[in-house]
Design a binder for these strands. Sequence first.
RNA 1: CGGGGUGUGGCGCAGUUGGUAGCGCGCCUGGUUUGGGACCAGGAGGCCCGGGGUUCAAGUCCCCGCUCCCCGACCA
Length: 483
Amino acid sequence: MLGPTHEEMFTLLVKDLYSSYKDLPVSLYQIQTKYRDEARPRAGLLRGREFLMKDSYSFDIDDAGLAKSYQDHRDAYERIFQRLRLPYVIVKAMSGAMGGSMSEEFLAPIEVGEDTFVRCTKCDYSANTEAVATGALPADTNTYDAPVAFDSPNCPTIASLVDYLNTHHARSDRAWTAADTLKNVVLQLRQPDGSTEALVVGVPGDREVDIKRIEAQVSPAEVEPMDDASFAKHPGLVRGYIGPQVLGTESATGVRYLLDPSVVPGSEWVTGANKKDTHVLHLVNGRDFNADGTIEAVEVAAGDPCPTCGGAMEIARGIEIGHVFQLGRKYADKLGLTVLDQNGKQVVVTMGSYGIGVSRAVASIAEAFHDELGLKWPRAISPADVHVVVTGKKDDDISVAAEKLATELEAQGLEVLIDDRVGVSPGVKFKDAELLGIPTIVVVGKSLADGNVEVRDRHAGTNEAIAVGTAVAHVVSLVRSGS
RNA sequence: CGGGGUGUGGCGCAGUUGGUAGCGCGCCUGGUUUGGGACCAGGAGGCCCGGGGUUCAAGUCCCCGCUCCCCGACCA
């Protein structure tokens, strides 16, 4: 079966096979061709419609069991990526369409990656941008003046409003900036059944809203900007001059209103007065208006505070190479996967789902391990252990010695690639060997006259003369050491 | 599905104000070479993406298709 993931198949399989708590926990895995109907495949192996994926599924009787299965997989994945020598970070992630709770992604931090994540420069916090939780920020305890409405002709945008403020209502301490303004973005939620609901999200005026991030929190609803037709249904919303005084389910308009957590309780804002060409100063959150709640809404930016330590966060790109998450009982419930527990009662099984993109891991490795000359395979997955380059002519001393060396290396259980092409100049063979990127290259050639072969390390770029007599042992120990 | 490119020997490309197609690599033959992508000599190979049009004349100008690539939407 060619599918995007195989949760259903595995749930049904386990339902068929097992019926007792004694059969659990159990984890099943496969390495399979998967298919995704990508709108636009790109980036070679990184993003095709067909790809190779290792996926596994765990089945447990209770939450503690699931937590252990999850941790076991997470640990195993760490060991796999360490062995591959693939640099990775583990980031908090959204579980997406499949639901569930705990979810983490393994990202290879590589510039060309398709995934954006943040990490703290002080502590070890990191998260996919969609999953960043701002956490609770301290409330603003200052006392502010009462709200004052003022005329603000031709100021439908934040930039024009800031200009106007600095010209006509200059502050004594500093200039007004976009960060002093409260921007209220009108969106609508489209539920799977097609129904829509207006939603206004308030963010500081210097920040953009991240629709994907919002969407991740209101799933399965989709988020879109409000169109003209829907705007017409809400005459209370004055475009360009929307303020929170008329927002909220308890308010005049009845439109749901959510604030980004960075708009903390007690903070004061310049914002729309719900009347054309009019804004208002000193509008305080909690005193002059109340939202229906908070929602992570701003586009995450470099320098944002870390939710765990408050340090500055940075933005980085990565390739998603693995994903682990706790599915919970969603599939088991729907498909009737239960077992009998110690008391003879039917219990719904709880599941986890864990994947590694095998083909895209190869792409990630190529990105992480190459230089201007070509690939540099990590030892653990190199197509061969050693690449023997023969620079002599057919049947001369050099080629005879090279054949012998290759045979002996093979006898030691190594995978040997030998370049014994005749009529090809040494330079060509060297370049080809570097391009292929087998970690150890043994050159049998000129230095044989001194009783040596050359052992080159593709990663380190070193070239060492080794006596022919000890070459086999030397190469074998290099390979076995995993270096 | 939007936006932008591209298409010429096997591969990578050039082709001016329209004048009947060229370069590098590769390939074939002979010879000389062998420690950083060798050299000499000779040679083969093209429906210039397709269709229509303008013109005495189109790779080149105009119109209509198609291809592949890139950027978005989408997605691991």
